[in-house]
């Protein structure tokens, strides 16, 4: 198992203002698998990703990545193995750092020596090429920015990639390109994906299994074949499917 989540609770605030964002979520993702999380906004799907990556400090339960249980503080090896791609490429890149700086800094922080060669390789891997190396984010289109964000996530050679709505800020034509890139990268590098999306057809395209979430709880886990045959059993999952087709 690449990722094992057992009765994960995540909350924000305390006392009267406490909000339970995720309640007793349990699922596991095999090595090389692609797992989807779907649900309405506020259902806690992004919060699960943030809890795995260490961005949500208040949690309880058990999270195991590649056989190692996660604690409140994460070792350096964790950040090498797990990387995240965010929803909005406009907001997740430093506006005054060039692509070269963004990738170079990431590689430096992870202790790589041959930074120059690796930046070149990363840009080729995400289909950007060398002419984008010294550009700033405002000189890139939305799709190109998301490619840079993916390159940054790939820099430490992770095994588990957390994708938080990676294409919802993009046009359909560009969405297709990014999804193809992610499919190729997973196949070539044997990556494991956990992908959050509100678009069931995107999850159906990318993932083998998915969990449907409502009000912080996972109400159903089903395979993509069941999704295609409209064979969800939980009433909420059924209504979500019906609304999306």
């Amino acid at each position: 198992m690449m990722l094992d989540i057992d009765t994960l609770n995540v909350w924000f605030g305390s006392g009267r203002d406490r909000v339970d964002a995720v309640k007793a979520a349990t699922f596991s993702v095999a090595r090389g698998e692609s797992f989807g999380l779907v649900g309405e906004s506020g259902s806690g799907k992004s919060t699960i990703l943030r809890a795995i990556s260490g961005l949500a400090p208040q949690w309880s339960g058990r999270m195991v990545v590649d056989g190692t249980p996660l604690t409140k503080t994460r070792p350096k090896a964790f950040y090498k193995a797990v990387q995240m791609v965010f929803q909005d490429p406009y907001a997740s890149l430093h506006p005054r750092h060039s692509v070269d700086q963004v990738l170079g800094e990431t590689l430096h922080l992870h202790g790589f020596g041959d930074i120059d060669a690796r930046v070149v390789k990363l840009l080729d891997d995400v289909g950007l090429g060398q002419k984008f190396r010294f550009r700033y984010p405002h000189q890139l289109s939305g799709g190109q920015r998301q490619r840079v964000a993916i390159a940054r996530a790939l820099a430490p050679e992770p095994q588990l990639l957390l994708l938080d709505e990676p294409t919802s800020a993009l046009d359909v034509s560009v969405q297709g390109e990014i999804l193809n890139l992610l499919v190729d990268l997973r196949r070539d590098r044997g990556l494991t994906f956990v992908m959050v999306s509100h678009d069931l057809s995107v999850v159906g395209h990318m993932c083998e299994r998915l969990a449907v979430m409502q009000n912080g709880q996972i109400v159903e886990v089903l395979g993509v074949d069941a999704l295609r045959q409209n064979a969800a059993t939980h009433p909420y999952a059924q209504s979500l499917l019906a609304a999306s087709i």
């Binding site: 297709g176 999804l179 193809n180 069931l200 057809s201 159906g204 395209h205 999704l227 295609r228």
Partner: peptide, 12 residues
């Protein structure tokens, strides 16, 4: 370019 639930493909 749209992914479709009823017609799965490897690449869009």
């Amino acid at each position: 370019a749209l992914p479709r639930l009823d017609a799965p493909r490897d690449h869009l």
